[in-house]
Nucleic acid binder design. Sequence first.
DNA 1: CGAAACGTTGACCGTTTTCAATTACAGTGG
DNA 2: CCACTGTAATTGAAAACGGTCAACGTTTCG
Lengths: 204, 204
Amino acid sequence: MLASGQAAADAWVGLVDPVRIRMRSLQAGEALFRQGDAVAALHRIRKGRVRLVRCLEDGTAVVLHVARSGETFAEASAFADAYHCDAVAEMPTEVDCIPRADVLAAIAAGGNAATGFARLLAAQVRDLRARAELRSIRSASERLLAWLRMQASGNPPAVPMTRTWTEVAAELGLTREATYRALARLESGDRIRRSGQTVQLQAC
Amino acid sequence: MLASGQAAADAWVGLVDPVRIRMRSLQAGEALFRQGDAVAALHRIRKGRVRLVRCLEDGTAVVLHVARSGETFAEASAFADAYHCDAVAEMPTEVDCIPRADVLAAIAAGGNAATGFARLLAAQVRDLRARAELRSIRSASERLLAWLRMQASGNPPAVPMTRTWTEVAAELGLTREATYRALARLESGDRIRRSGQTVQLQAC
DNA sequence: CGAAACGTTGACCGTTTTCAATTACAGTGG
DNA sequence: CCACTGTAATTGAAAACGGTCAACGTTTCG
């Protein structure tokens, strides 16, 4: 799921001539852009983490998204003149900056670039919708199990764990403790089996 | 938020010649398409509700998305040869069917159609990300308050209620009871004030 | 006019969060 | 090579929160 999202995110950057891409380093707390800034470039994170925050009229803030390594973000800003939120690094971060005009020109030109960009955005939409649906499952174990099933491949279906459970917990909208307990419950209920870095799904 | 998503969903259908759009009626339980079917058209719901389900190797199912009135869905299928999930009506439903080839041709031709489609997908991504971030707020009142703040405009900030609280509750991933309780708590805590169809946010 | 959905509130129960503590492990600098 | 430090993994116990069930008035719409 996230894998497909990242693949998508990586790919559209390729639609633009690499020579035109600039890299920028940010310290923790440093802003990549601010609400109201003119949109000059789109971004992909190489390393680190960037928080997108919308500041409200009454001075409070709402977090819109936290982008991590490999992700692109604020794609919608490609079509806006000014950013509608702030982007602030949560830690030392490196981001690629792809000139907005290049992306727009590639899309308007049609052909592979336009189709590619649309395809990749569509993949992200599918990804995000699936994630949203996951979160609507109330039970921690069922939620985790559904996630595992979506990740699974092969026969018997198995999931290779490439990330930490702590990260997975965050994606699932659970605390890491709840996730471990759900894992334990699923295993004792014989719905899954864990061995090292992989989780085997048992037939139900 | 949802408003923008729906506007987006509505708009891209306009990229295609209306004459080519067909309407289809489904009974509850009837399938619009099945996993593996060739993708012939994209869809928008006029009335009713369609559930997208991915059937897994072990015979179990995961709900990917439940699309409601006004929404388009399975945009990603525009770029696939076959559907990767089943679409089943949950109730009597009417859907528009927009020929896939027309959409693809419009995108590949570039210009307004390509830019428009990409723009609208980008808007959906932003929308979904914001919603996901909302759902990561655990407390019901804080979640609702964050939602209200995102909807708010004007000074003092106020939110006109265009939809029912029941719908809002679903979007927030809460039951309607929890939402009413959160409303009551926010109002008694003087963080909001309700009068008829609008909610006033109090400065914090 | 009647049915269905919305709005609202109370009480109880189950689950998850939170707080806390312990083990394991990987990297780091002496 | 080994203490040392930080993070991940794991489990327990208590508290808080939201879900579910129930009940009732109100609005909407055919």
